[in-house]
Design a protein around this nucleic acid. Sequence first.
DNA 1: ACCTGAACACCGTTCAAGT
DNA 2: ACCTGAACACCGTTCAAGT
Lengths: 206, 206
Amino acid sequence: MLLLSILWYYIGMAINHYHHGDLKNALIAAGLEILSESGIEGLSLRKVAKRVGVSHTAPYNHFADKQALLAAISTVAHQQLYEILLAAFQQHRESSPKIIFEIAWATLQFAMEDPGRYKLMFSHVLEEEIYYPEFIETWRKNIMLLEEIIQCCQEKGQLLKGDVEMIALKVWSSVHGFICLALERQLPQEYLDKQDLQGMLKAVIA
Amino acid sequence: MLLLSILWYYIGMAINHYHHGDLKNALIAAGLEILSESGIEGLSLRKVAKRVGVSHTAPYNHFADKQALLAAISTVAHQQLYEILLAAFQQHRESSPKIIFEIAWATLQFAMEDPGRYKLMFSHVLEEEIYYPEFIETWRKNIMLLEEIIQCCQEKGQLLKGDVEMIALKVWSSVHGFICLALERQLPQEYLDKQDLQGMLKAVIA
DNA sequence: ACCTGAACACCGTTCAAGT
DNA sequence: ACCTGAACACCGTTCAAGT
């Protein structure tokens, strides 16, 4: 019966096109689109399936549940951030006197450009990230890059010496905390009157 | 007919008790309970109503929609944080050599004690906080207290002089960012091996 | 192997009706 | 004024059935 099933599968593939070429990645891409358009609240499994043009139960062939899809979307988003950070680093590592600021600024722009994406990445809708090794791996890649950047800054004398990991934690906490506040529009108006975002970010990571 | 309605109301009040004494606050309290038990995902309007023992449409007499209830719950949570911060400040303002650390530590404990509550307060499920003046007011009270604390630290020489609001922003970003990471368990394991939470917090606000 | 459709238990919200 | 119950459109998830 297994053999028969496989047979049916290939016949299906050959005759009609109801089998999607790469449904898994199509779902992830559609998820990112919806996330960008309607935010994290508007991201439902059924909408994602509908956008791809597939029944609302089809995703369960590729993802155990909604969490698993969110984890996959989040992983891709982390990869996108990695590329942006790397590009910013390569662009400024020689010229800029404040590499860390450039990195922070690039991250802030990445967040503002698509708040839903950023929130998904860090708001941990994922309750048990431990079950998503790819997510963890990509996340760690970003941490490692940050540590590399910090080490570079230390060598250039742009940052104090000291335990790289603790400094990474410190920088990351500040930048992430500030982005959260900016994203949720929780910066008091008086602050906004005084400084623009760029000025505030500078103050935060000073 | 309005008069008749009011008459009915008071007769209803007198005869039976299906009118809740203070449904509005009962809903807020129940919301905080559910939030604490099942997190922000588990907090539904229908569950809150059920816990209070009222029909699932009853909340609409006191709150325009779910957002409005969340705003009210969030406001109460901010008041709770205010009291904790104030208590910590009063306890340590004379004795401690690191007042800011004590405040940050108290906040971290407040967050860990009830992650759902903290997330609701800052994750801005509220899209348009501008429409909830009570929320804004309570939130501002906390900012003002933080600024007062910072000023006190400056006078004691525990903190550098400078624009109080910008320093408040900086401190708050660091602490909030660190709490987010801790809450979402996004601190790399290597970091946790090296330091405990208290040590990391110290490093972050150093 | 991969997809569908019916079904279930849950949501937020509206609205006419009751007291 | 305040509350209820039916109704609607939306969820996530399961499962037997199709190809």
